[in-house]
Amino acid sequence: MSDKTTTTDEVVAGLHSGMTLGIGGWGSRRKPMALVRALLRSDVTDLTIVSYGGPDVGMLAAAGRIRKLVAPFVTLDSIPLEPHYRAARERGAFELMEIDEAMFMWGLRAAANRLPFLPVRAGIGSDVMRVNPGLRTVTSPYDDGETFVAMPALRLDAALVHVNRADRLGNGQYLGPDPYFDDLFCEAADSAYMSCERIVDTAELTKDAAAQTLLVKRHVVTGVVEAPNGAHFTSCAPDYGRDEAFQKRYATTPWPQFAARYLSGDEQEYRSAAREDS
């Protein structure tokens, strides 16, 4: 079995402009921020981003890397409105497919199951249908005859996720309260890159945790990156909570200044800059 360990920069070297990228986590929770930072250091642009949006979307939007966004919301949780996303939207910076949270999940499920769509009782009657004229409906062939949104598969060229632990083979483990949808993102993607707080031996994964915590299975993972603090400044329970002070600085610092201070060097430099300023 192959060792899939790699680095953030190698992961990004395998991505290219114009791709559809799914980003795991939720809002400002367990986002693969080290991978996003590596993406920001690269020239990769013109992206379609599929995300339960948080600062991943905000940063990529601020840096002008998004051509199209697929999302039900973008939030920093403790700061409800993502300022960089907001500014980008208000200047009409990219195309948006705004869909409901459940439609989003059904779209990933459809992709993971290689189905063209899944029926979902959400969206009908709302302006989600108006702002997404490409969405179609489907009528039940059974006696109920109900009409649903036929949520199209959200197939991804690549997925980026961050988990608490992984082995070298690509088995990923979450240890916090919620898996979010990281397994679905990986299953919906042609290739999936998983960063983790710590790479451990396979046997170590279940030494102190139940097998149910093994969220992501290796057959859907292309590369594994050890990235301690790799979700910073989002939360990564139980390893660490959200860095609220840093998130506030992110939200209130003009983007060029923030990028110059924290994103001009490598991940080590990011960490020491963040440490110095805390």
Partner: peptide
Amino acid sequence: SCIGDWERPKRQLLGVRGAPVNTL
């Protein structure tokens, strides 16, 4: 979701979140 024209909102808010699925 937003205030003003959706294509180019005057004020971008949260997004639809789960409101469509909740209400149906």
